[in-house]
Write a protein that binds this DNA or RNA. Structure first.
Lengths: 202, 202
DNA sequence: GACTCATATGACATTAATGACATATATATG
DNA sequence: CATATATATGTCATTAATGTCATATGAGTC
């Protein structure tokens, strides 16, 4: 349901085509919501049916004609009403945390590699958000206050994940885990990694 | 795809019925993954087909028979392989952040109420996670290290959201926003809230 | 005695989202 | 000259997940 609203928000700063919106979503400007172009076109169609957006075809040679969408008065009303009903709190739901939770049953070296990759990813994201955030520094108009607050969430999210990754890598290092873990593995009944596959089959 | 693995993880500490798993997921023990029972039963069926779980029917009077599932050797292998391919990084995707990003176009008082409710929610969650975390204190076996690390993520997540909420409430308070915001609203062309609905219709 | 709750399983309709396929051309790179 | 990339729109199959309905009963509450 929310993609429609995210698209409307994208339209608040001027008319855009589906292609424009998709690009904006992909080029990391779509910080807090994303979608593939196939879904965007579908939702744009629905927005138009609903009267929340209007469209205008712009002739082009060669490429297919651009169809640019604008938000309507109804659409703006839709945004306000949307903001008036409480949004769903994002619960943690993450493969990776499930894997950690079941550390005894997974490949720890693979997990570490994964954490390393994630750390890099989070650092990259952090830089991007920081640049956006810096650009708003000192601004006190409504829009910018909202964007600052939203970007703060994003900054904290990325920074904390990056820092946690650092700590996790240390705690899961063979040196750190090694002797202790081995001892305890035997004691616990040696469930770690693949001790079950007695047959070595497959 | 991951629900299957989350279910398998739930089965690593003993055989369970679909009902048990659903309860575990709902009772907040399903910290990092959740699902409705309808989906759980479906996925249990698939796990069985795949040979990753086996089931056993337990006769009961009155209620439908319990069907308890156990993880198989193949299932354990599945878990290891699952952990070996990099998991998807969870990107921020949140209605609420989109609303903040479009602060000029939404109902700020409603947003504040929303933030307040979220703060309470995050505080509750924080307590739950903290209790779980405290119970693991000092433990150095593999499983517990994994759980500590996973719970740390959860703790940080909830704590940071709660603290951010506090700051956001302050920055979005009428006193803080009032005069400044009003000034800038006029200057910006007064796009805030519902200034569009000239007709007062609907 | 009526009502709700916990136990227990499952089918089915619908929604949200991804990913693959399809089409068409101008421009830049090797 | 061939190939890739950017522009631009869309359909369609499939997957993942929610939510609703259906069924059956024992135990506790008002």
């Amino acid at each position: 349901m929310s993609l429609q609203h995210a698209i409307l928000v994208a339209l608040t700063d001027g008319e855009k085509s589906g292609y424009d919106i998709a690009k904006q979503f992909d080029d990391s400007t779509g910080f807090f919501w994303r979608a593939r172009h196939s879904q965007i076109y579908r939702e744009l169609g629905k927005l138009k049916e609903r009267g929340w957006a209007s469209s205008q075809e712009i002739e082009q040679s060669g490429k297919p004609n651009r169809i640019v969408f604008s938000i309507t008065a109804e659409g703006r009303k839709g945004l306000v009403e949307w903001s008036q009903k409480p949004s769903q709190v994002q619960e943690l739901k993450d493969d990776f945390l499930v894997q950690l939770y079941a550390l005894e049953h997974v490949d720890i070296e693979a997990l570490r590699a994964n954490i390393l990759a994630r750390r890099e990813r989070h650092r990259d994201h952090l830089k991007q958000y920081q640049a956006k955030y810096d650009a708003l520094e000192g601004s006190t108009n409504l829009t910018d206050i909202g964007r600052q607050l939203a970007l703060e969430v994003a900054l904290i999210y990325e920074r904390e994940w990056a820092e946690w990754s650092e700590r996790a890598l240390a705690r899961l290092s063979p040196e750190m885990l090694g002797p202790e873990a081995l001892k305890l593995e035997q004691q616990a009944g040696a469930t770690n990694v693949v001790p079950i596959a007695r047959g070595e089959a497959d």
